[in-house]
């Protein structure tokens, strides 16, 4: 997902057991935890990692799509793509705000991304080679993201839940515009249909990876479930995604690149092949097709923007000082 492999931080020191129990009771009762409320250190640190990773994914996720803004096939498609990429920036900002309430600064988070102490979703390390990839990204990548984000609207941390509510409201436009691109290409010339099929072939397995490794290999998720930071198992969401997406592909007349794909009457869902988890861990480690390019783009943006940040910071400090002098 946009936040993958989030391990529960259980390194908390001897914390007041009674307080921890009372905290868990609040979560069990469905109460939201707010920034100034007491919380276990592990809960706070795990959330910073998860929300931070989610925020970074929104920001880095602008790169593969920004790649196509200047080459969109029509002015209408261009304005739509611009709006979508702008939304991703907004989503990143909502999430950074939520993470900041946990006591981490925006700059610290950015630095952790740039020196690779924090990650972003593996999906954005894949290239977007043709216009059809804009369709596949919206349809599959945003579709997979929605699957995970809808339950997170009920997560226990108030600012995170509220950010997710806003994001979910905006996200469904993203998926629909992607499906719309695929639909138009699939109904177009044979060459256009081939483009759509190739995009589906490229993005199918990376999209399945977004849900994270199989639950059987996913340690640490129990604590995150108890804290209501993680709401569903990885396999459960992946199954749901496949079950919803296969009929959509059939409608488009496109073929899911999985020969083993078959409806299983008994479980009421599809049997399907999992992605290559070796590839997944390799991409997470930094060896995906675009890891270097993405981080270099972020580093360049950060460094090129330094003079603007510094100049306006000086302006803000000057204003604050003058206000203080006037008040004195």
């Amino acid at each position: 997902m946009y936040a993958q492999l989030i391990k529960a931080d259980t390194s908390q020191r001897e914390e007041d057991a009674a307080r921890t129990q009372a905290f868990q009771r609040r979560i069990d009762a469905g109460e939201k935890i707010e920034p100034k409320d007491w919380m276990p250190e592990g809960y706070r640190r795990t959330l910073i990692r998860q929300i931070g990773q989610h925020a970074h994914s929104e920001i880095v996720g602008q790169l593969p799509e920004g790649n196509w803004i200047s080459r969109a096939p029509t002015l209408e498609r261009k304005t739509i793509l611009l709006a979508k990429v702008q939304d991703e920036a907004g989503h990143g900002l909502y999430l950074y705000c939520a993470a900041e309430t946990l006591g981490v600064s925006r700059d610290e988070m950015t630095e952790m991304l740039l020196d690779e102490r924090m990650k972003y979703s593996s999906i954005f390390n894949y290239p977007t080679l043709t216009w059809a990839d804009m369709g596949a990204v919206g349809w599959l990548v945003d579709g997979a993201a929605i699957m995970n984000q809808v339950p997170l609207q009920r997560t226990s941390y108030g600012p995170y839940a509220r950010a997710m509510i806003r994001i979910c409201k905006e996200e469904s436009f993203h998926q629909r515009q992607g499906f719309d691109i695929m639909n138009q290409l699939a109904k177009g010339t044979p060459a256009q249909k081939t483009m759509a099929q190739n995009a589906l072939d490229r993005f199918w397995y990376p999209a399945l990876m977004m849900f994270g490794p199989p639950d059987s290999d996913s340690v640490h998720s129990e604590q995150n479930m108890a804290w209501k930071i993680k709401m569903n198992g990885n396999d459960e969401l992946r199954q749901k995604f496949v079950d919803l997406t296969v009929p959509q592909a059939e409608y488009l007349g496109l073929t899911i690149p999985d020969e083993t794909l078959q409806w299983n009457e008994e479980k009421g869902g599809y049997d399907f092949a999992g992605p290559d988890w070796g590839e997944f861990f390799d991409v997470i480690k930094g060896n995906g097709p675009c890891n270097k390019e993405r981080l270099e783009a972020r580093r360049k943006a950060w460094e090129d923007g330094a003079w603007v940040r510094d100049g306006l910071l000086a302006h803000a400090k000057k204003k604050a000082r003058r206000a203080a002098q006037e008040a004195a």
């Binding site: 900041e100 946990l102 600064s105 925006r106 803000a316 604050a320």
Partner: peptide, 15 residues
Amino acid sequence: NQLANQPTSQNEWPL
């Protein structure tokens, strides 16, 4: 910042 857990960083634009 009384709404969150720490003073905002002195090196960032105000919140």
